[in-house]
Design a protein around this nucleic acid. Structure first.
Lengths: 108, 108
DNA sequence: TCCTTGCATCGATGATTATCGATTTGATGA
DNA sequence: TCATCAAATCGATAATCATCGATGCAAGGA
């Protein structure tokens, strides 16, 4: 007995690596909480100095995560004097969400 | 000069860990391609035997990834004779996408 | 010009994990 | 009963990465 009609997914290895890299930036509790904290800020901007404590992680660790998110394009960084302020790139977040829809995964 | 209004994100550590675990299941090129391949199947069901080759990975590796996705609730497994068939849990995928929306991250 | 302070970087470490070859399990057919 | 084949599990390995203490750097303020 045989098996299986031919399959051809539309997401190739390169596209998958690119998307996975982006999703990986979101696949961490600390980073998800950072986005949550920043998104909840009054005007959308949050100071890094306010993030260490509610996160319960050291300053270098938080800095590391913030950099990761900026690098992924999910956060925007702005220096004001000696403080670093961050804003969530909502458009970018929506991009990821769209790419993860079944439609996005199948049509490329 | 002082800094910073108080912040209170709505995603606590436990919720963040739970969501991150789910997102982590999607944060891998092989698994994204698996979902893409399975979602592209004619009737939505795909046989595991058809997935190793287009993925360019060994059988144990593919089996490992499929199990991860099933465990995360993102795939449904059904044994038919000696073959394993899989279907994408679209509802679950939408859950993840909703949780990643700014609204989902801020309201909990 | 110092001292303070906030953030980034460095180096190290422990944990997680993607991957594969070998083996086992389980179902099918002869 | 035995041979075959698909899938899961095992064991090992290499790579990635979250975390932190220590250090460096740059911007204010005195």
């Amino acid at each position: 007995m045989d098996c299986c009609p031919p399959l051809h997914g539309t997401l190739d290895e390169d596209g998958a690596i690119e998307l996975a890299t982006l999703v990986k930036a979101l696949a961490d509790p600390a980073r998800l909480r950072l986005i949550s904290l920043i998104a909840a800020a009054d005007d959308g901007w949050a100071c890094a100095c306010d993030l260490h404590e509610p996160l319960g992680r050291s300053q270098p660790t938080v800095s590391h995560h913030l950099s990761k998110l900026v690098q992924a394009g999910l956060l925007e960084r702005e220096m004001r004097g000696k403080w670093a302020w961050f804003r969530v790139r909502t458009d970018r977040l929506d991009q990821v969400r769209a790419a993860l829809a079944v439609g996005g995964l199948v049509t490329g």
